[in-house]
Amino acid sequence: MARPSPSPSPSLLVLSAIAAAVCLAQPGAAALKVDYYASTCPNVEAIVRGVVQQKMQATIRTIGSTIRLFFHDCFVEGCDASVILVSTGNSTAEKDHPNNLSLAGDGFDTVIKAKAAVDAVPACTNQVSCADILALATRDVIALTGGPSYTVELGRLDGLVSLSTNVDGKLPPPSFDLDQLTTLFAANNLSQADMIALSAAHTVGLAHCSTFADRIQPASVDPTMNATYASDLQAACPAGVDPNVALELDPITPQGFDNQYFVNLVNGRGLFTSDQVLYSDARSQPTVVAWAQNATDFEQAFVDAITRLGRVGVKTDPSQGNIRRDCAFLN
């Protein structure tokens, strides 16, 4: 019988606890409640989930694109749906920043359609924010693909600002190493353990050839990559191919939200440098190994981490935001 691998290091667990305390102390975070809409729109979760189910049946891209949209939203202006706003003649919005141009339209469409479905219920009209709908839709795509179902804290207002220039330096490129990832997540009061757990969102979704081409060059294949996997990627993304060709981030269970991501890393099948480094760096490797072997522990860590992510930069004061009538435009 294989020897159990070590649990996440005490230092990571301490960091996680500290991050949780800090997040709870953030302005606005304490005002979030799981039953926020109990009296104004009690069926909001069922309405959103119904739309998410329909979108997933129409296109599997809904899964990864919705999760990614939530992450990109929270890391720039906080979880306030500012990433959904469109550019105007006077300013370029977040969604048109080069780092956001690859966000799939299905994520945006999921939120916009869910908002329309919610507002179609008279009691719910203009009562539910786009930011909360995105948080709910993210939970739903995770749960509906086999991942954990968790309670979502609600009460966010939609932000009033969306500027492309505010995206600079806020999102991790696929080339980041462990220190860079840890620093960026710490800037959002998220621990290294949170970062590792949230990285597992790459168990679903797609990535363009251009985002990992540097790792599979025939003359200099990344030594941390499994040789067979590298060959498969070279065949799918040969030199001269359209860099916008997209491959599945998880080649084993691409449509299931599970701990296969960590199994892949142990086997050298992390697609990005920022994925594989979580295993190749000795400081984070024990956590990766532990979660590769224990799906239950991973799921709990992920729920804790995405709950903390959902508290980042939230607006609950009317001076900071409102409830948009149209998620893509300011009122």
Rank of each mutant, 00 (worst) to 15 (best):
V128T: 11
S210D: 13
T253R: 13
V52N: 06
R49M: 11
D222K: 03
V118R: 10
V263A: 10
P4S: 08
A295M: 01
S175V: 14
G155I: 05
V52E: 07
R156E: 07
S82F: 07
L160A: 01
V34I: 14
G146D: 08
L171D: 09
F257V: 12
V121K: 11
I306P: 03
D304M: 04
S7Y: 05
N331M: 01
T66N: 03
S16L: 09
S284Y: 02
A236K: 14
N226D: 15
P6Y: 00
M1V: 13
A117M: 06
A93F: 02
P10L: 09
I306C: 01
S7N: 07
G205E: 04
E299H: 10
N244E: 10
A2E: 12
F272W: 12
C327I: 06
A21L: 14
Y36K: 10
A30S: 14
A19H: 00
A131I: 06
G146N: 09
L233G: 04
A200W: 01
W291Q: 03
N264F: 07
E45A: 14
S102Q: 13
L103P: 01
A186F: 04
V51W: 07
S210Q: 14
V289Y: 00
L154I: 03
L69P: 08
T307S: 12
D73H: 07
L206G: 01
S175E: 13
L330G: 11
S7W: 03
A93T: 04
Y261P: 04
T183I: 08
P148Y: 01
L249H: 01
S9R: 14
T138G: 11
I133Y: 04
N322G: 08
A282K: 07
L12H: 14
A120Q: 11
T138L: 04
L101D: 02
D258V: 01
I252E: 12
C79T: 06
N90K: 12
S149Y: 02
A2H: 11
Y279M: 08
R311G: 00
V277C: 05
F108R: 12
T40Q: 13
H97E: 00
N43Q: 15
N188I: 04
P218I: 11
S16E: 15
F71D: 14
L184Q: 10
T165F: 05
D304F: 09
N43G: 12
P318D: 09
E94V: 13
A120V: 02
S11W: 08
A290S: 15
D140Q: 05
Y261V: 08
Q26H: 11
S175Q: 14
A197I: 02
P10G: 01
A230F: 08
L15C: 05
V204T: 14
F298R: 00
I112A: 12
N244P: 00
Q57H: 10
K170I: 05
T40A: 14
I323G: 02
Q180N: 11
P251G: 03
G270K: 09
T88F: 03
A29R: 00
S65F: 01
N166T: 07
S149D: 15
L181W: 05
A38M: 07
